[in-house]
Nucleic acid binder design. Structure first.
Lengths: 186, 186
DNA sequence: TAACGATTTTGACTTTTGTCAAAAAAGTCG
DNA sequence: CGACTTTTTTGACAAAAGTCAAAATCGTTA
């Protein structure tokens, strides 16, 4: 009943030994809407899976918030710079709904990677899957207009429209909220 | 003097045992401008590093070619679907210059991943680095206008402008070649 | 329910980018 | 060199998206 460990298992077998270690490392927390999972500049971070709830990742550019992704339930989530590189995060991760999540710190994860080489298979597959998802998003931004991108989002993350404000979605799509409002009117 | 093995070494130590296996698996080839490394629909593919030369990856959308990336010397290259998923490639990879490259097939790579768990550390780090590069590109497409994206490209891949035709670059930036020509006029 | 703040919509206008056609420039090869 | 192809540039116009300001709607809570 540990959403993060269950998720790991989808990417590869866990020996009883590794699973036991994971049970020591993985913690669960509950946070309110508006709370932060991660703030820009932080180096210490975690990989996490939301059991119930929702987050957004965003960064500031030219004094504006830019939403880089949304994190729904049962998806492996994290910020690349702190988790992959032990470097300060350029993005913030904020809960958009009251949320319960399971997490493991990058430090502990790297510890597992070192002690159990097989764990790297799972880490590799997770990163590879993220590559494919990011490529999909690049294709959408590179070749589609605002309306088509909105419909791509509807298709891949239909929940988003119900649960996330129009302004946040517009930012994620790389358009203004006025434009998105006009698209939606149709 | 094996560009691919050297590249692997940048991501982690290779035991003599693994390096010997790699030497068996990694092959070198030379191809002409216009030749294909990979064609859409292929499942069998490889990870590769170009010693001298240049490739582009592109796919067809609405009867038009869309350039998804360019591959320069001494960068780990490959197409996600066939390499990560053993699924048919949606993209083509074509040489834009006469090229010499080192490659390892996905099959052999997966073989190494299974036989030498530590090899997954290198695979993981490669995939993680690609994630960061792809995120960078998403940020550019999401928040910058045509001119800013052009300057981002100038900054990150200054070679591109010298070695790649304007039409190919425009496609990569998600704009028309007329627009790019007008940007460049300034 | 009333009042407040936040979010969404609308309108008028500007800027950016795309489209289509044609001309100019650059590259290739006998 | 000269003919041919490919690539790049230019012009006129159309479409897409942004900006700014104001109004409408929605949600929350006293």
């Amino acid at each position: 009943m540990n959403a993060l460990i269950n998720k790991f298992k989808e990417y590869g077998n866990l020996s009883p030994e590794i699973e036991e270690e994971l049970n020591n490392y993985v913690k669960c927390k509950t946070r309110q809407k508006g709370d932060f999972f991660l703030k820009q500049g932080q180096i210490v971070s975690s990989l996490f899976v939301i059991e119930t709830g929702l987050v957004r990742a965003y960064y500031i550019k030219d004094n504006r918030e830019v939403n880089s992704w949304f994190g729904f339930e049962n998806i492996i989530l994290g910020s690349a710079f702190p988790v992959f590189y032990d470097k300060p995060s350029y993005e913030n991760i904020q809960f958009l709904e009251p949320s319960t999540y399971y997490y493991i710190t990058s430090k502990d994860l790297n510890d597992l990677y070192k002690r159990f080489p097989k764990m790297n298979t799972i880490g590799r597959k997770i990163a590879e899957e993220i590559c494919v998802i990011l490529e999909e998003r690049i294709g959408s931004l590179q070749t589609e207009n605002a309306e088509q991108r909105y419909h791509s989002l509807l298709k891949f993350q239909p929940d988003a429209i119900q649960r996330i404000s129009l302004g946040h979605i517009a930012s994620y799509l790389g358009i203004t909220q006025e434009t998105l409002s006009r698209i939606r009117r149709k």
